[in-house]
């Protein structure tokens, strides 16, 4: 155990090394300034190192096995309905409370108020932000359902994704310009650090427990759906607003 911990710790150090080099280079060579609050930065860097190490250990011990055992349990149970309900709940539940999404939704409400899409009142803004959050969460729930269905049926991922891209392009033509940037960004913020390993393990686990599916070809792709559908749904939300 201690040697595994030490190995992960060294690995984490290498993961963080590029940032240290970049920040150091810009601070000393380009901006030519000393590092402010050196002590706090050193303590913070140590926290980042310890945190990343614990996270990676926990990933292998907790999140990966959990995602896989859920996939096996649902495959054994054989009820597609329950699996899809679970997929929706997982997508919706993990997204609706996501802090990055809350921040983007508030920002979007500000944009909408400045563009006179909604009234400038506090109430109108928080309604708008909440509606946007629900929209994105619904779209991620929907995405995981489609993604899981795809793994089970063995549909090739590219047709669905390319279809989705065409949907994004079509929506871009009709959506109000001020929502487009937010819509494109909302695809990237939905997938959090805890959701990604869990959902990946779930997909790979499902693909390995169903006969005829290849975990490499069929197991990945859930995250891709979860980053694509919010763009379409948010633009639709902007058009309704």
């Amino acid at each position: 155990m201690p040697s595994a911990f030490l190995k992960t710790l060294i690995g984490s150090f290498y993961d963080l090394l590029p940032i240290i080099v970049v920040i150091g280079f810009f601070q000393f060579a380009v901006l030519q300034q000393p590092i402010p609050n050196l002590l706090e930065i050193l303590v913070g860097a140590f926290f980042v190192l310890i945190g990343l190490t614990l996270f990676v250990q926990g990933l292998e011990m907790g999140l990966f096995p959990l995602g896989e055992s859920l996939a096996f349990a649902f495959a054994k149970k054989g009820s597609l309905t329950w699996l899809l309900i679970f997929a929706f709940a997982l997508g919706f539940g993990t997204t609706v409370a996501e802090p990055a999404l809350i921040a983007v939704a508030q920002e979007a409400a500000k944009v909408a108020a400045e563009g006179h899409v909604i009234e400038g009142t506090q109430q109108a803004r928080s309604d708008y932000a909440f509606g946007l959050r629900l929209t994105v969460a619904l779209s991620v729930g929907f995405a995981i359902v489609i993604g899981v269905l795809r793994i089970i049926r063995g549909w090739p991922v590219q047709y669905l994704i390319i279809g989705g891209y065409l949907g994004v392009m079509m929506m871009t033509l009709f959506a109000p310009p001020e929502i487009i940037g937010i819509a494109y960004d909302s695809g990237g913020v939905t997938t959090s650090t805890i959701t990604v390993p869990l959902v990946t393990a779930l997909g790979v686990g499902l693909a390995s427990s169903i006969r005829g599916r290849n975990p490499m070809v069929d197991g990945f792709g859930l995250i891709a759906f979860a980053s694509l559908t919010p763009m379409i749904f948010v633009m639709a939300y902007g058009m309704m607003g």
Partner: peptide, 15 residues
């Protein structure tokens, strides 16, 4: 593992 992930992320974010 879950506790490791939680505590690890908290340290990571604070850092």
């Amino acid at each position: 593992g879950f506790v490791y992930v939680l505590v690890g992320l908290a340290f990571f974010l604070l850092g």
